[in-house]
Design a protein around this nucleic acid. Structure first.
Lengths: 147, 147
DNA sequence: GGTGAAAACTCATCACT
DNA sequence: AGTGATGAGTTTTCACC
């Protein structure tokens, strides 16, 4: 892992805010030639610093206006099933993010659902019913801020 | 809030995975003209369905290889300070995301830090020392999956 | 590793359906 | 609302430093 120089740091900061910033403006703001800029950005992608360019979608706009964090504890006898469990969970459309934790809880699942019925249904069908799950704790998300 | 039709849904799905997909390929994959495609995407942006285009940065590549979730409870006498507290917290460079919760805990803070010293320093300086904070609980993130 | 200039491609507008 | 064609703008390549 090579540390980032000043130019790379600026590029990362700019692209984090606007992943579609034109290469020409990027080069201008950083103070390098367009051709240099494009090879710098390529290098950041190749080195795994930039992992993807994504459009942020408002969950509410998709009709998913109720978000929650669900803490999940796995039964101590079912630890070996953690990988299989996480593979099942991460594929579900309601799942926004999945945190694999160390500590009292094994996972935190960030979900976006239509309403409380949908949320309850998600927990009951995908979590409570699962053999590996010891317990769950659901907290409603009032606001979600991403940096 | 107008619900998304089939074309919009496809566009959202494609741009979520690759926010830099060229308009030409986007139009081709969805089966509409380029000019139609561009106005559809504009409309999604204007309606607030697409909120931003961002580059995903690997925290490890920035030297922030220790991630954690920190649950924070606010003192019952300091509820009015929640907004001020969240404003302070969200500006910190270690903060990846901030969840405003209903339930036993008031916040969950997702942080990315260099190492355990940095993490402890973050909790001590920014949370434990804060007058409004009743208690915190820190869990290490072993893996973080985003959908 | 960085550069400028040219070629290839993409975006974005427009008159029309 | 959707389309094809057109011109402006952008990305990307390449020979050279």
């Amino acid at each position: 892992m090579t540390p980032l120089d000043e130019v790379d740091t600026k590029l990362v900061a700019l692209l984090r805010v606007n992943g579609r910033m034109p290469n020409s403006r990027l080069a201008e703001l950083v103070g390098i030639a367009q051709s240099t800029c494009i090879s710098r950005v390529r290098s950041l992608e190749d080195r795994g610093v930039i992992t993807a360019y994504t459009a942020r979608i408002s969950p509410a706009a998709l009709g998913l206006s109720l978000q929650a964090l669900i803490s999940v504890s796995i039964k101590s006898g079912a630890r070996h099933g953690i990988q299989a469990f996480s593979d099942e969970i991460r594929g579900l459309p309601e799942v926004v993010e999945l945190f694999f934790l160390g500590g009292a809880e094994d996972f935190v699942i960030h979900v976006a659902t239509r309403d409380s019925d949908h949320l309850r249904e998600f927990v009951v069908s995908n979590l409570s019913a699962h053999l590996s799950v010891a317990s769950t704790r659901t907290s409603i998300v009032f606001e979600h801020v991403v940096n």
